[in-house]
Amino acid sequence: MTVTPWGEVIPDKPKAAPQPPVLEVKDLHVHFRTDDGRVYAVNGVSYDVAPGESLAVVGESGCGKSVTAMSILGLVKTPPGIMAGGQVLYRGRDLLKLKPRELRQIRGGKISMIFQDPMTSLNPFLTIRRQLTEAVELHLGLQGDAARDKAVDALRQVGIPAPEDRIDSYPHEFSGGMRQRVMIAMSLVTGPELLIADEPTTALDVTIQAQILELIQRLQRERKMGLVLITHDLSVVAGMCSRVVVMYAGRVVEEAAVDDLFADPRHPYTLSLLESVPRLDEPAGRKLRPIEGLPPKLTSLPAGCAFAPRCRFVRDRCKKEAPKLEPDAEGRKRACFVPIRRGRAVDGR
């Protein structure tokens, strides 16, 4: 991706790669019914992933990243969840409208998912072998030894030492990092086109985090697989992904190529987010600014922009009207009324 002077060139990627996206999330709305009222968890999220592309989804805790990801595979429990609207298109087919049988072929077969906590995401009562081979049997139609060999192979690829011996172990006999490797092996053994990794390293030690991310990246490149990487960690995003979607309170507030986003965030929330973490490409000693205030209550969202109460660029209009995700003058997609360049409002202040 080339850095373009503002206002001139539309990013070249859509033109250079006219491939249709593997996955398109369109105006997704997901709510939850709870004792304290309806939780508006996802309110019109849209993003897409091209084949072989890696997309990052970032945002504060509770902003709806996981719920969106789970909705893709229909893993949101209804009730209490309510799929209130929108589409999830996989190669043009709306996954939300598929019959259970059709959806099952896609789950784990075409689209796989890795979850945050490897300590609880593996079934403690079943051997690793059983948990791997059941996916192989289901999606690849292999049985017996063939399935086992495939599973051993998958374990080897994710760097489990002596996979032939380890395959008959139970999850509790593995460390956290190893378990996440097993999870990765499990989700990739069927050769999916798209991998959704929901904070795959949050629960791991820092040293292991890097290894796991590297592994995911390597496998993604090797297999030319689409990747949706959900994360808190912006430094991860820079190294691994080509495009970023920033979410806030169940909405996408900015979507941009990674380099654009880091170089010049166009949404006040993205700006604050970047200011709140240390960056490698900046001189040390820069003051970190945590985002002030709290994320809004999802039970009663404000009428205007959800970020307005915490926004330093806030205008009167922001409190009355919710901005849509639209390209600005330079084609950068963002949901804000205030034009922002290089951390400043263009119209003064």
Binding site: E60, S61, L294, P295
Partner: peptide, 9 residues
């Protein structure tokens, strides 16, 4: 590293 503003219990 997580965004610093966590929801307090």
């Amino acid at each position: 590293m997580s965004a610093p503003a966590e929801t307090p219990p």
